[in-house]
Design a protein around this nucleic acid. Structure first.
Lengths: 263, 263
DNA sequence: ATGGAATATAACTCAGACAATTCATCGTGA
DNA sequence: TCACGATGAATTGTCTGAGTTATATTCCAT
């Protein structure tokens, strides 16, 4: 009589998906992490709308067939990211969208699982276009030998591996991270790290939909050269053009995906 | 025989401090929230260094005299902000500083409870100096009547109340929030909201150390006027000078606080 | 040395109870 | 009629104690 098609198994089966392993974002197959992930994505998708109150802990945990502790810890995670808010008697409700910490790396990752709106992507690139050229400028002024070396080796890996491989994409991230460290600005580095990870995440889709993309290494190399010779203006300009090209590629990819969704 | 000077009482007494009430950051007197707050501040202060593993759940919760559930939920919150990482057998360890989500509004708030380094403050203003003028530019191009009205009313309140009162500081935040909404860029708005809240938090100190500060309303009004007449260049420039003045004030304040720490 | 199995330790999950908070309702008095 | 205080109910919050699972370490055999 126990037709156990309960959601619990679905949750339990989530641990260590191919996605998270290759992306580095580990919710580690812990039950609370998996549930937070699932609920977070559902909120981002609009399955639970802002203002809506979730079923109470008892009901939720029993229909999900997990313990209240695990459920509560998942809610704690979402609350820490500003996505829900709990009060006794009032329940747990989804907060208004403006209060979500969408620049949280995890939230950003969830976002890219839900085919984010083109508007959102454009906003993200717009932000990159504001921050990263300025960062390149600062990096050109403040970089040390160590920073240069880190950037250089990352570039070498990128060149050898291209963005088609996992290590290649990782090298891309490392290049940008090294650049951000060179700015000596912790807050700026944190911001760019979040966005960079999210954008790298979307790069996988670009790569999948067709290999007909420009080689990104020369663009990166130009940025590096400008920083090497401490030419702040050139660094800014090269970085800006690099991002514009990435945006261009991304938009083209999104368009083709809309036109031929099954390629 | 029960000499109950246990830390539990200290925690229990934390709820709803004057700080959080006036600042709007509510950790609501919940035990897990209070503990997360405390641990978070301790990590930021360096009481627990990156790489260090915390005592295990059993010990921690018993020495704090709280239940394991509450302790675990606190840890979940910190983990969600990237500050700790837990694994079976390995324990819960503080992650490296680069992985902390320092742009999380709550983390930023904790930061300002620990007298952040001058370097950090400068970095934050540097980031503001990058993003906010660009935001003002976008706002000038995209603002609607509704945005203008929101900014205008906020300015009126600021004018009437000054930054000495709570409602005055709130109006300042509302002005910037309305401006960010006018950019139509969700990510940018989220970023500026975080930073703005943190900076407003520090404004309380500025105000306390002496009323000899410039009236900020004219500067804000200039930004508003530029946005009103859709003059993107002027908006950028006015915003930039506004932030430079704020930075100037903040630095002067920090310096006097160093010189006469007991005024 | 190297690879694999045993072990111990920590977090993880569970269950059930009780406490605390707060929203809503009702009643009372001005 | 309105304001305000007491009461009740619903929900999260906290506690306890147990068993489970993952994994770093150790030890053994190869």
């Amino acid at each position: 009589m126990t037709t156990d098609t309960s959601p619990r198994l679905a949750l339990r089966r989530l641990p260590s998906s191919a996605q998270e392993q290759s992306f580095g974002l580990n919710f580690q197959g812990r039950l609370h992490g998996a549930l937070a992930h699932r609920l977070g994505v559902d909120i981002l998708k609009g399955v639970y709308a802002p203002g809506q109150v979730l079923p109470n802990e008892i009901d939720s945990s029993s229909t999900l067939d997990i313990s209240r502790s695990a459920y509560r810890e998942a809610i704690r995670i979402l609350a820490a990211k500003g996505m829900v808010e709990s009060r006794p008697k009032a329940g747990t409700k989804v907060t208004e969208r403006k209060r979500w910490n969408i620049l949280d790396p995890e939230v950003l990752g969830w976002m890219f699982e839900t085919e984010p709106s083109e508007e959102f992507i454009k906003g993200l690139f717009e932000l990159r276009l504001i921050t990263e050229p300025a960062a390149a400028e600062l990096a050109a002024l403040r970089r040390t030998e160590a920073h240069l070396k880190a950037m250089d080796t990352a570039l070498d890996v990128m060149e050898a591996e291209t963005l088609a491989t996992e290590t290649g994409r990782k090298a891309d991230l490392e290049f940008h991270d090294a650049l951000m460290n060179a700015t000596g600005n912790e807050a700026l580095a944190s911001l760019s790290h979040s966005i960079g990870a999210a954008v790298a995440w979307s790069t996988r889709f670009k790569q999948r939909s067709g290999p007909l993309l420009r080689d990104p290494v020369p663009d990166h190399r130009r940025v590096y050269d400008a920083i090497l010779r401490q030419d702040a203006g050139a660094a800014r300009w090269c970085m800006e053009s690099l991002i514009r090209m990435a945006l261009d590629d991304t938009q083209r990819t999104m368009k083709t995906q809309y036109l031929e969704p099954r390629t």
